[in-house]
Simulated scan of single mutants.
Amino acid sequence: MEVQGKIKLVGETKSYGSNGFQKRELVVTTEEQYPQHLMIEFVQDKTGLLDAFNVGDTVKVGINLRGREWQSPQGETKYFNSIAGWRIEKVGAGAPAAEVPPFDEYDPISNSKDEDHDDLPF
């Protein structure tokens, strides 16, 4: 899945626990009739992907939806969702545009004097 929008916040990389788990948060505001502020988590080796991005950049982010079930000591079951980012790229003015090949007015087939244009082998 992908999310596109403008970066509102790029968080610092934080470490958790004794095993050195790393997480970095990115907030992207979608550009639609009712903009949404989506917090996307980048973890472990993906935290460095955010180094090249700044607040205000328009980006496209590759995401996965994550869901977890948790049971409290009282036996109550709760569900939690998160958005995990795994790819990010700039879009818009700073991004390379796809180039359309130039139009060539001379078409050797339609401009030739030979009327037999059927070059099919059968």
Rank of each mutant, 00 (worst) to 15 (best):
P96I: 11
I109S: 07
E32L: 03
R24P: 02
V3Y: 07
S82L: 02
V91A: 04
V27I: 14
T58H: 13
G94Y: 07
E89R: 12
T13N: 09
G94C: 06
S112M: 14
N19S: 14
K60C: 10
E99C: 01
E31C: 01
L120V: 04
G85M: 01
K113P: 03
Y34L: 07
G48H: 01
Y106I: 00
V28G: 02
N81V: 04
S82C: 03
V91S: 11
E25F: 06
Q33Y: 05
V100H: 13
G17M: 07
V3L: 10
G75I: 02
S112W: 09
A93P: 00
T13A: 09
V43A: 04
S72D: 14
Q33R: 09
E2S: 04
K8V: 10
F103T: 07
K60G: 09
N54L: 08
T29Y: 07
W86L: 01
D57T: 01
I63S: 01
R66A: 06
N111V: 05
G62E: 04
P108D: 12
S82T: 04
V43C: 04
A98Q: 14
Q4R: 12
K60Y: 05
F21P: 01
G5A: 08
S82N: 08
K6H: 11
E105L: 05
I7L: 11
H117L: 14
T77M: 14
P35Y: 12
M1K: 11
R66Q: 10
G94H: 02
G20H: 02
V43N: 07
Q36T: 03
A95F: 07
L120C: 06
S112I: 00
W70Y: 13
Q4C: 05
N19E: 13
Y79E: 06
E105M: 04
Y106N: 08
E99R: 10
G85N: 07
D114V: 00
L38I: 14
I83E: 13
K6M: 15
G85C: 06
P108A: 11
V100I: 11
T13G: 08
P35H: 11
K60R: 12
V10R: 12
E41T: 00
V55R: 14
V59K: 06
P121A: 12
L9I: 00
P96V: 05
K113E: 15
Q33A: 11
L49Q: 03
I109K: 13
P102D: 15
Q44F: 01
P73V: 05
K78G: 03
T58E: 15
V28D: 13
T77W: 10
V100W: 11
E89L: 07
P108T: 05
K46P: 02
L65E: 15
P121C: 06
T30S: 15
F80M: 11
Q4L: 08
K46C: 07
F53M: 09
F103E: 14
Q74L: 05
N19R: 13
D45P: 00
K14I: 08
E41W: 01
M39Y: 07
D57R: 03
D104Q: 12
I7T: 04
S112Q: 15
Y34C: 03
T77R: 11
Q33V: 00
P102I: 05
E115F: 02
I7M: 13
H37N: 15
Q36A: 14
Y34F: 12
P108Q: 10
P73N: 13
E2P: 00
G85Y: 02
N19L: 11
A98G: 09
I63F: 01
F122D: 12
E41H: 07
I88S: 03
E31L: 12
V100F: 10
Q22C: 03
